[in-house]
Design a binder for these strands. Structure first.
Length: 161
DNA sequence: AATTTCAGCAACCGCCAAGTT
DNA sequence: TAACTTGGCGGTTGCTGAAAT
């Protein structure tokens, strides 16, 4: 059923309330982040009944102060496509090339937007190659697509260790 | 105006690897 | 060294508001 980390005590699930956000931010600003398992133990005193995993995700994807909000720019979209062509669905790695963006955000953007665009251009979103039996219906052809700036192949300095 | 369908996104789940006991 | 814990990741679900009927 649930995670082993949450199975012991009652924990809340689902969307976070502004009050919960506030409690988590207060906890992180005083204790710092890094030991997520201790967050629910300590902060449950404040009434935050979330498992460590949920706290970590909420912080990383929404509460972190260095997050960039708003729509992806054309440049960011280009970076995602180029890096994805090399790395595939390694969202965390891709997100490292986009300051202020999270892996979840990149993944959602890919699934809801970029994938459709590539398919509309007759490109296989997995391989980025022209799909058989399809013609690019739009103005961008495979040839023009291939002229986009390339990123060095793996193993690449793009991926910091 | 009411209902249904769709799209986008936040959050969960299960798995894995590394660290600890 | 096996068992357990924890953090991290990618796939997927399901909620919500917008658009369509």
């Amino acid at each position: 059923m649930g995670h082993h980390c949450c199975s012991r005590q009652k924990v809340k699930r689902g969307l976070w309330s502004p009050e919960e956000d506030e409690k988590l931010v207060r906890y992180i600003t005083t204790h710092g982040h890094g030991c997520w398992s201790s967050v629910p133990k300590t902060s449950s005193i404040l009434g935050l009944q979330r498992c460590g995993k949920s706290c970590r995700l909420r912080w990383i994807n929404y509460l972190r102060p260095d997050l960039k909000r708003g729509s992806f720019t054309e440049h960011e979209e280009r970076v995602i496509i180029d890096v994805h062509r090399i790395l595939g669905n390694r969202w965390a790695q891709i997100a490292k090339h986009l300051p202020g963006r999270t892996d979840n955000e990149v993944k959602n953007f890919w699934n809801s937007c970029i994938k459709k665009k590539l398919i509309a251009q007759g490109l296989d979103p997995k391989t980025h190659n022209l799909m058989p039996n399809t013609r690019p219906p739009l103005s961008i052809t495979h040839q023009t697509y291939l002229t986009f700036p390339k990123i060095p192949a793996r193993p690449s300095p793009l991926v910091p260790t």
